[in-house]
């Protein structure tokens, strides 16, 4: 456990050392500041559009930063030949896989929390009233979302190059978020082979859209039930374990 946390600690330091995070943070703050100043036909207290923009920015920036961090871990260690140094220590390969995953996840979550704090500041200064239970649930469910995304990217990083991994992970993430819910229905009119592929994708790939509760938060709907949150937690743990296992199976016998 100590080994896993030590590797994770390094990753958390790494993300805050890079400029990417600060660029995203400044961009997020500037866009939210500009959006909060907009006036629409002199009607006061219009807030939902600001929440929509703010949450979208938090989700997008966090996902992109996490994917780029998780994807470059192992390839950069191989390229810089630091993996040999790391493996010279009594460190089981499984612990390295888990350490890289936990580090990327915590670093991504910290980035998200900083973006989210900026968003809450602007949203609260304009809306004056926010559903705090819903705000909490949004954070928790997005953490689960990041967990699967990090595990997927981390799992792929033992096979793919950094650029291929980032591209593939983000395409899968964006496609499932946008079309995951309706893919099966949309594929009904496809040629049988394409329909078969689409349905396979629909049932096998993780449904990232399950963790998106922006609609409830923005439109003042009540939070989802604890039972459903429990199910979503198990779902996220299952998929994370699956992707990490794929990565570990590949890395287990890889010659250094």
């Amino acid at each position: 456990m100590r080994q896993i946390l030590a590797i994770a600690g390094l990753l958390i330091k790494e993300i805050f050392r890079k400029k990417d995070f600060y660029v995203a943070l400044i961009l997020c703050a500037v866009i939210l500041f500009y959006a909060s100043q907009l006036q629409f036909y002199n009607v006061e207290n219009i807030t939902r559009y600001l929440m929509e923009i703010g949450l979208s920015l938090c989700f997008i920036f966090s996902a992109v930063l996490t994917v780029s961090l998780a994807a470059r871990q192992v390839p950069s260690e191989v390229q810089n030949r630091t993996l040999h140094v790391l493996m010279a220590k009594p460190l089981p390969r499984l612990n390295l896989v888990l350490g890289k995953f936990v580090g990327s996840l915590f670093a991504g979550t910290l980035c998200f929390l900083v973006f989210y704090a900026v968003f809450l500041f602007f949203a609260f200064s304009k809306a004056h009233a926010i559903s705090w239970p819903m705000a909490g649930q949004t954070v928790y469910l997005f953490f689960l979302n990041l967990m699967i995304l990090t595990a997927m990217t981390s799992g792929f990083s033992y096979t793919l190059t950094v650029s291929a991994n980032v591209t593939m992970s983000l395409i899968i993430y964006i496609l499932i978020n946008a079309y995951g819910a309706t893919l099966k229905e949309s594929s009904a009119g496809f040629f049988w082979f394409n329909r078969w592929l689409a349905e396979g994708f629909y049932y096998l790939m993780p449904h990232f859209e399950f963790f998106d509760v922006r609609q409830r938060f923005i439109h003042d709907w009540p939070p989802v039930s604890n039972k459903l949150v429990g199910f979503l937690t198990l779902y996220a743990v299952f998929y994370s374990a699956f992707f990490l296992m794929i990565g570990w199976l590949k890395f287990r016998k890889k010659p250094l």
Binding site: F210, R216, S225
Partner: peptide, 9 residues
């Protein structure tokens, strides 16, 4: 999948 989505959304 639709059932879960219809409970989340």
């Amino acid at each position: 999948v639709y059932k879960v989505n219809s409970r989340v959304k």
